[in-house]
């Protein structure tokens, strides 16, 4: 019979490098964390097949349009003309701005049309229609 080699019974893993590993993880999470700044208003976002993931969370501004025809940016209900001023300011601060339009699926296009015209006036033309991915 083959004799089993006896493994050394007590071989402790060195924990000296544990703080370093944890520290690395910590730095990773600190860098990637983006704190939620605004909560928005409840809207039901539609589904779309071609919905893609948008990179660059920091360049995103959320604009909520709900069923009651309210426009909400940065947790404030604003009018259409105010929207233009707000977006113009944001656009000058960040030229790579993307406006994420979170529109309720049952709202009318008339409101969206007004908002899009305001965005054109503010020259914040890069938008994205928020949509969840539809499973075929």
């Amino acid at each position: 019979m083959i004799e089993k080699k006896q493994t050394p019974s007590q071989q402790a893993i060195s924990t000296a490098s544990l703080p370093d590993i944890i520290f690395l993880l910590l730095i990773f999470f600190m860098v990637t964390t983006v704190f939620v700044e605004y909560r928005g208003i409840p809207v039901k976002i539609p589904e779309a097949v071609n919905s893609e993931k948008i990179d660059g969370k920091r360049a995103l501004v959320y604009c909520y349009l709900d069923l009651n025809g309210r426009i909400c940016v940065d947790d404030q209900i604003i009018t259409n003309t105010e929207l233009m001023n707000v977006m113009y300011l944001k656009r000058t601060q960040n030229p790579r701005l993307i406006v994420s339009l979170k529109v309720d699926e049952n709202s009318k296009n008339g409101l969206l049309d007004k908002v899009q015209k305001a965005l054109q006036d503010a020259d914040a033309r890069r938008v994205m229609y928020a949509a969840t991915t539809k499973t075929k």
Partner: peptide, 26 residues
Amino acid sequence: TFLLLIFFIVTTTISSDKGIKFVLPP
């Protein structure tokens, strides 16, 4: 550091911004 790590893991939201990109005409 472990405590800090747990704090950041809990607060991190994995980005879930999905949508259809569109550029409005000038």
